[in-house]
Nucleic acid binder design. Structure first.
Lengths: 252, 252
DNA sequence: GCATCTGCTTGATCCAGATCAACCGAAAGC
DNA sequence: GCTTTCGGTTGATCTGGATCAAGCAGATGC
C-alpha cells in the first residue's frame, strides 16, 4: 500500500511540464525538449511552513527559488531587529535574483504560509541558459522585470501618499492573484498589517485606518485578512495622481 | 592635413580594450578576443550635450547605453509634468536594463552634462552572450547588481530620514567617483538640488537645509555644486540607523 | 553694460502620517 | 473551561519635512 502510494506520487510528480505555472514562470515559451532539460535541474523540497527560511541574509548564494504554491516574503534585516520588507512573492515568481552579483544573500526570505518551493541551482541554470537561447532570453526578461518592479516601488515610496500606496498594493495583489486563476475581487492576504505597512513605508495604524476608510467609502469590504473589492473602478481611481483634493505632487 | 587627422582619430579610436572603464564596465574579466568581439558591436555616437535624450519613455527598446564620460539621469515622467528621478549614472554604468522585459522604455534618460555614450544593440549583445559564457555571466551580474541597488533605494525611501538620505547619497557618489579615479572627498555634482531632492524623495528646500546643517556641523563644505568632505567618518556616522536622538526606526 | 531668469537658500507655517495609548476579539496555551 | 497573547482597530497628540513666501547671487540674454 505505502509502496503504491509512493509510486503514484512518483508518477504524477511535480514537473515543469505539468505545472500550471509554466506560462508565468521560467518555462514560458520554451520548447518541450528544453522544458525537460530545465526540469532535470530543478530540486523539489518538501513543503515549508510559516516562518521557515528559504535563505538568510549573509548566506552564500547557490540557488534561485521559485514559489510553486503558497507565498514568501523577502526582507532586508537591519542590526537592531528592524527590517524592510522588500516583496511578497506568489506562485511562479523567482526569488534570489539580487544575490547573483555578489554571490551572498543581502536579504532573507521566509514563507508566509505552507508553501511548495522549487530550487534552481544557479551554476547549472547558467550552463543551461548558455545552450538554450530562449531560456537565456527568458532569464534576461526575468531580471529586467524585477528591475521594472523595483522602479515602480521607488515611485510609490518617493511620490505616493498613504491611500495611493495601499490602493496600489491591493490592486497589484488582485492582478497577480487573478493571473494565477484566483478571483481578482475576493482574496486572502497572507501577510499581516504590520508587514504591509513595513513594505509600503507606513505605520501599522495608518494601514489599518486606510482599510477602514476604504470600507467606509464603499470601495471594499475587509474582514481580517479577507479582502473583497466592491468598487474596483473606485479603487483604481485612487491609484494615479488622482490627487483628490489639495494634495500636490511632491518635488515637481 | 585633414585626412591625416581623420586617420589618427581612427587609430586611437575609442575601443573597449583601450577604455579606462574596462574594469568597471561589461568587458570586466573577459578574454582579449572576447573584448574584441564585444567591441565590434558597440556603436559610438558623437558627444551629447546637457538635456539631450538617450531615449524617452514610450520608445521601443533597441539598445543598452553605457556612459563613457559625463553623467546621465534616468527618470520616470508622469502625465502632469511631474517626474521621479530613478538614478544618476556615471561612466561605466549601463542604462536601459529595465526595458528588456517589455521592449518599451518606461523611463527617459537625458545627459546632465556633455557626455560620451556607447550604444549596445541588445539583440546583437544577446547573441554574443550566448556564445561567450563569461559575458553572459557578466550580464547576469550587471542585472543583479541593478536589482541590489534598487533594493538599497527602497530601504532608503522606506526607512531613512532626510539627513540619512542625503548622507547616503553623498557617500555613494563619493565612492563611485573614487572608483573612477576621482577624489573621494572633493567632487562636483552634475545634478541640481531639485534633482537630488526628487531622487531622494525630499523637497528642494529640505536638501538645501541639510546641506547647510552638514556644513554648520563641520562635516563638509559646499559651494554650489562643489562638495568637499571635511569629516568623512562623521558623514558615514549619519548613514546607518545611527539614530542620533529621539528618532525611532519606522515600522519595526 | 544692465535686465532677467534660474537655482539656491532661509524663514514661517502647516499637515500627513508617525507615535503613544487604550481597547477589543480571535486564537493559542494551559 | 479560563487566561494570555497577539494582531488589529481607534482615538489623541506630536513632529519631520512639505509647502508657502521672500530674498539673493550666478548665469544668461540683449
Amino acid at each position: 500500500m505505502t509502496q503504491d502510494k509512493v509510486i503514484s506520487f512518483e508518477t504524477i510528480r511535480v514537473a515543469c511540464k505539468n505545472c500550471t505555472l509554466s506560462t508565468l514562470c521560467l518555462p514560458m515559451g520554451l520548447a518541450p525538449d528544453d522544458v525537460e532539460r530545465l526540469d532535470s535541474i530543478v530540486k523539489h523540497s518538501k513543503p515549508l511552513h510559516r516562518g521557515d527560511y528559504l535563505f538568510r541574509s549573509g548566506e552564500n548564494f547557490r540557488s534561485l527559488f521559485v514559489v510553486k504554491t503558497g507565498s514568501v516574503k523577502t526582507y532586508s534585516p537591519s542590526e537592531e531587529g528592524g527590517e524592510q520588507v522588500l516583496g511578497f512573492h506568489l506562485p511562479g515568481e523567482v526569488i534570489g535574483l539580487d544575490a547573483i552579483d555578489t554571490e551572498v544573500h543581502a536579504c532573507s526570505a521566509r514563507v508566509l504560509e505552507t508553501s511548495a518551493i522549487c530550487e534552481l541551482p544557479f551554476p547549472r541554470l547558467e550552463e543551461l541558459t548558455a545552450t538554450i537561447p530562449s531560456l537565456q532570453h527568458q532569464m534576461y526578461r526575468l531580471l529586467s522585470k524585477e528591475i521594472s518592479h523595483d522602479t515602480e516601488m521607488l515611485l510609490l515610496l518617493g511620490k505616493k501618499n498613504a491611500e495611493e500606496r495601499l490602493a496600489t498594493f491591493l490592486v497589484n495583489m488582485s492582478r497577480r492573484l487573478h493571473q494565477r486563476g484566483l478571483s481578482a475581487t475576493d482574496f486572502h492576504l497572507s501577510m499581516s498589517r504590520h508587514e504591509i505597512g513595513n513594505y509600503l513605508g507606513l505605520a501599522v495604524e495608518t494601514v489599518s485606518r486606510i482599510f477602514t476608510r476604504f470600507q467606509e467609502e464603499g470601495l471594499l469590504k475587509v474582514d481580517r485578512k479577507h479582502v473583497q473589492f466592491l468598487n474596483l473602478a473606485g479603487i483604481e481611481a485612487v491609484l494615479g495622481q488622482a490627487v483628490p483634493d489639495s494634495h500636490r505632487v511632491r518635488s515637481s
